[in-house]
Structures are given as structure tokens and as C-alpha cells.
Amino acid sequence: MSETVTLTIDGKKYTAERGRTVLQVATDNGIRIPTLCHNEAIEPYGACRLCVVEVTRGSRTRIVTSCLYPVEEGLIVQTASDRVIRNRKMLLDLLLARCSENEVIKNLAAEYGVTQPSFRQEYWEKNDCIVCGLCVRACEQVVGVSAISLVNRGISKEPAPPFLEKATDCIGCGSCYYVCPTHAIKMEDKNGVRRIHNWKVEFKLKKCSKCGIYWAPEAQLEYIRRKADLPVGFFDICPNCR
């Protein structure tokens, strides 16, 4: 049994395993903290900052990101103090100015009473991507391919394939598409072809030689086949027909 600590979240005491983050412990206990750049299977990153909470340790109170902050004995956490809400509102204000037409951002902002950006309309942008890096991190950490990366820095930072051209290492698995919190990645399967528009790639989908259903991108199956050292033709038949 690993060591445990006791901490207070929103006035209630909780026991938690040392090494877990405030976000994990709060979520486990039904306390909802909004996040955009977080996924359990991927290392926390702290980019969207929406999960900010106020922590007090001794005499020091400050704003931290709960997805990264490890629980400590005696820590006092407030997940919805005025200061937290003020910061979240401003974050959503900034995100809304960046993604003024994105439904996910619009809904989340509206939840916090932010219905339109505080900034002059001429500066509103119509992005869908919030540069949370989940697609890039999923590709690296979960798939192990790193077909895309965050390129440039500052305001021009964006997830993109190398040289802003076709992502040659992409296997078309769709993890980026699935993990994107704002549906900024456009993927479609049509007529036996998968297209991921953001990375300028298209893949032929494998047709099961028995039932004729397109069941996975050929490139992905080939990647797995090689990695697992499976015989050629191993994936000719879909799992249902096997």
C-alpha cells in the first residue's frame, strides 16, 4: 500500500495516494474541474490552464494547475473560489476570442457566463485549434509515431506535419482526431479512403477479404504487423470474420 495524504478540497477532507494530482483526486471524488488539454492516457501538460485551482499551503495561497499539482499532506484546495472563477472566465474569454465560432469553446464559455469576447471584434479569430498539443502528445506517447509536432512558437505555434506538408510518418490511426477536444481535426472515411485533412494525408482502408467491410487503414495495419512481426497477409481478414 502506498503512502497516503489527507487534503481538503472545497471544505471537505479527502484521503489520497501520494503522487496523484489534485485533478485526479478531485475527479475521483466527483468534483468537476474543467479541462481541455487533459487525457488520462497522456502525460499532463498544463497548457489550457482551465483546471486552475487555488491552493493554500501554510501561509501561502496561489493559483496552480490541478492537472500537474501533486497532492500534499494538509493541502487546502479550492476549486471554485472567486479568484479561480475570475481566472477561468478570462481564460475562456481569451479562448473565445481565438475560437469565436467553435461550438465546444462557445458552450464552455457560456457555462461561465462568457458569451462574447471582451476584445474588439476586429480581433476575433475563427480558429478551432487551441494548441493544447493533445494530438501531438497522443501521436508520440500513445501511438509512438510522432508524425506531427508543434511547430513555431508564440502566437504562430500550431500542430502541424513536418515542413507543413504531408505527414509522411502518419499511419492514419485517428488518435489525434479522437483526442482533439475542440474537433479541430477533420477526418473522414469515405469510399474506402480515410482522409485527415489537417495533416494532408489520405489512406486506403483495408477491405476484409471475407466480408468486404473496410475496417482499418492499411498503413496502420502494416505498422502493427511490422512491429509485432506478424506474417504478411495477417490482416487480410477482419477480426469479425476471423
Partner: peptide, 11 residues
């Protein structure tokens, strides 16, 4: 010069 990682700084 911002690295562009976090929203408050970048935006």
C-alpha cells in the same frame, strides 16, 4: 518570444 504553450501567455 513566448513559447506559445499556455493560453494566458500566448493569447
Amino acid at each position: 518570444e513566448s513559447c506559445g504553450k499556455c493560453v494566458p501567455c500566448r493569447e
